[in-house]
Design a protein around this nucleic acid. Structure first.
Lengths: 254, 254
DNA sequence: GACCTGATATTGTCAGGACAATTGGCCAAA
DNA sequence: TTTGGCCAATTGTCCTGACAATATCAGGTC
């Protein structure tokens, strides 16, 4: 009745692993499997070679192979079932929400991003900002307000507050690169972010900036991002044109 | 200059592990650590005992302890740094987006959910539905349209399409329980879901159902859910009152 | 005092093995 | 034909051991 697609594919011969390089073996393997899935070499429903055999064929231990597979399971591309094996999930694949800025998102989708910088100034933290950034109320912070455009069409109005140490960021940096790129170039690596996604009506000013009707629906996102050491490095309040931007989330039950 | 909070807490003595029970050891450990963080026993910024020592103290191997810690890192509550140790992240903790229905969300926040069933009927799949559910166009499907209320205030209008095998679900099931509860009781376990979150204006009918002004902003979410075997079991188009509902997402960079 | 250097601590990666739990199919018995 | 039980396949969990990479810190040298 049901097409079970029991084909255990040989999955090419990706034996060329870089054993001495800095890239972990499990990562090399997971990348190749993911690529094979996305390219269609491993079609939806097909079974992956079992962990032990795959390990022997690649000259890797089972934990390493297992970790590689787990990476892809966490992305929602594979499903493992005890006693059965590991299968490629059905359904078309979509990109997962990741810790990226809008700038990265746009370049990934081959649109040309640009920035209209509205405000770049020092501000003392009010109660809300202080709480979100975990700094004392009244501390100096850097306030940024920008309009983001994709192919010269306005997509989002973005407000950001950064802690004291980033005071000194130049307007030219923000116009040429995304905020996250600027932060990375200053040695900051974002590690955890908490986002809140909602909706509301646009103000008249926002309508004008985004070139939409007054009282339109806006998609909003608040985000606080933390670096390696758990310190808050960015707090942002963004609003997006819902006809041009939306969020994709892939959830995997464990 | 920076308060480094170097306290390596003893973290109580949770030596009472159930070694013969069905609950994995790593899960028991991760649960207790998570509880200690949420309860404030392990304050933000404090360092966790190192993996080797923790393993010795609990009588566990390092991989087991490591996996327990990794679970919490994936939830965004801990950050590990090589050469340094593992620390509790700063910032208040929020609940993560999980694979749950609105019904579950509401009961978890101690509100009283109820349902107003608008439509429950068989429909043949149109092109969009067929593609999302991976069935043939024209196949029979079950169509459900409901208004969800929390404490008797309307929160969302939800449309769902289910594949043929679920035809037979009774109105009484849907009024008494959430859709996901009904599916679980029929032996279906959701495993992967792809969500699309956006915004738009409300129609007049939706405004009336949700008891809001005409042309209000709505938060929308489309979802396709897949079960263990990767088969699509639900496709839904929902819209929420943005003043009563929003999405929280915690992202962790790996 | 400033800077380099090495020791130490801690997590990251990988190997190899062992047993448990679950699923599906085969085969025999009713 | 149907039902039940046994067996093989596969993933889940856990252990021990080893070495690599990276950050901190103390100490010595200039």
């Amino acid at each position: 009745m049901s097409a079970k697609e029991e084909n255990t594919l040989p999955m090419g011969m990706f034996m060329d692993l870089e054993r001495s390089g800095p890239i972990p073996l499990y990562f090399q393997v997971s990348q190749r499997i993911e690529k094979a899935i996305l390219s269609g070499e491993l079609p939806a429903g097909s079974r992956l070679e079992n962990e032990v055999a795959l390990g022997q064929r690649l000259g890797l231990s089972r934990p390493t192979v297992r970790r590689a597979i787990q990476e892809i399971v966490d992305k929602g591309l594979l499903v493992r079932r005890r006693g059965i094996g590991t299968q490629v999930v059905h359904g078309q694949v979509t990109r997962k929400v990741e810790l990226t800025s809008l700038y990265d998102d746009l370049t990934n989708t081959h649109k040309v991003p640009s920035t209209h910088l509205l405000t770049l100034e020092n501000r003392v933290a009010d109660a809300k900002t202080a709480e979100r950034l975990s700094v004392a109320e009244g501390s100096p912070t850097l306030y940024i307000r920008r309009v983001r455009l994709a192919d010269n069409v306005p997509v989002a109005v973005m407000e950001n507050w950064l802690p004291e140490e980033f005071i000194g960021i130049e307007p030219s940096d923000l116009v040429a690169h995304g905020l996250y790129q600027v932060l990375r170039s200053r040695g900051v690596t974002m590690r955890v972010a908490r986002q809140h996604i909602g909706a509301r009506k646009s103000t008249n000013e926002e309508s004008a900036l985004l070139e939409i009707e007054k009282n339109s629906a806006l998609l909003t996102m608040d985000r606080t991002a933390f670096d390696n050491s758990g310190r808050a490095v960015e707090f942002g309040q963004h609003c997006y044109r819902p006809d041009l931007y939306s969020f994709e989330v892939t959830l995997v039950e464990k």
